[in-house]
């Protein structure tokens, strides 16, 4: 199979970028999307006159670490549902296809280089309150506090988020509500997270806003591209938590 790739190239977050066209030749359908791009990179890497490697990020290649990104033909993580880009294989494309590859685009995700973006805004949202304040040691026995199975399951549904940022990339508004609500709902559902539930949601939403993410208009594009299928019901849950926390604030 042969493909024509239109790839965004940008030196760093200060420079402006542009699309360049590359050919990926002799690709087999079994190849993963990144293996396909690496065949192009291999050539670029050995050609002193060329543009050098296309910078791109991937790591675990099994859809769990959240390192890989890419918007492929306008869709975050490509045409298949419920997968990350690293789980996308070339059999999902047709021979001769033109493929447009862009980085995740959001003010809060500045481009580091080419297709690599800086998602540290997510880390700062977690740092704002995405934890249970418990020190190491002295935790009570794990079975001391029974947790209803469906509560644990609901927490797990939310906790599956891998922090890849596709929700922001896909959202027409560049909103990080799905990511933030997944963490808020995961900890909020569990009794261990309950004492800090109000403060957590206030702080995390504040940080989310401060990072320059857009607001949610309930279009659910995030849910459609989420590789872990995180439900937008958690956004509703967070809205409710946030309202309640705001109303009951004492300061």
């Amino acid at each position: 199979m042969d493909f024509t790739l239109h790839i965004w190239r940008q030196d760093n977050n200060k420079s402006s970028g542009s699309f360049k066209t590359y050919r990926a030749l002799d690709i087999t359908p079994e190849m993963s999307f990144f293996e396909m791009i690496e065949t192009v990179n291999e050539k670029l890497e050995c050609n002193g006159a060329g543009d050098g490697r296309i910078a791109l990020e991937y790591d675990c290649l099994e859809g769990i670490c959240g390192t890989c990104s890419l918007v492929i033909n306008g869709v975050a993580h490509g045409p298949n549902r419920g997968v990350t880009t690293c789980q996308l294989h070339m059999r999902s494309f047709n021979d001769g296809d033109h493929i447009t590859i862009e980085p995740f685009r959001a003010k809060a995700f500045p481009v580091t280089k080419d297709l690599v973006v800086d998602r540290s805004a997510f880390d700062r949202i977690i740092q704002a309150g995405g934890y249970v304040s418990v020190n190491t040691g002295g935790a009570p026995d794990a079975n001391a506090l029974p947790i209803m199975r469906d509560v644990a399951d609901r927490a797990m549904d939310a906790a599956e988020c891998i922090g890849c940022g596709a929700c922001v990339a896909a959202c027409k508004n560049g909103s990080a509500m799905l990511f933030t609500s997944a963490k808020v709902s995961h900890l909020g559902a569990l009794p261990q997270g309950a004492p800090e539930r109000s403060k957590r949601v206030l702080k995390m939403v504040d940080q989310m806003d401060a990072e320059g993410f857009g607001s949610c208009t309930n279009q659910y594009e995030c849910e459609a591209v989420c590789p872990k299928g995180i439900s937008t019901k958690f956004i509703a849950q967070m809205n409710r938590d946030y309202m309640r926390a705001s109303l009951s604030r004492e300061d």
Partner: peptide, 22 residues
């Protein structure tokens, strides 16, 4: 054993039985 206690206290959603235990 302490690891499991610690992780549960942090909010790690381990699988549970219907009785609510791990």
């Amino acid at each position: 054993s302490n690891i499991i206690d610690q992780c549960v206290a942090q909010g790690v959603p381990f699988a549970r039985e219907y009785g609510g235990h791990l």
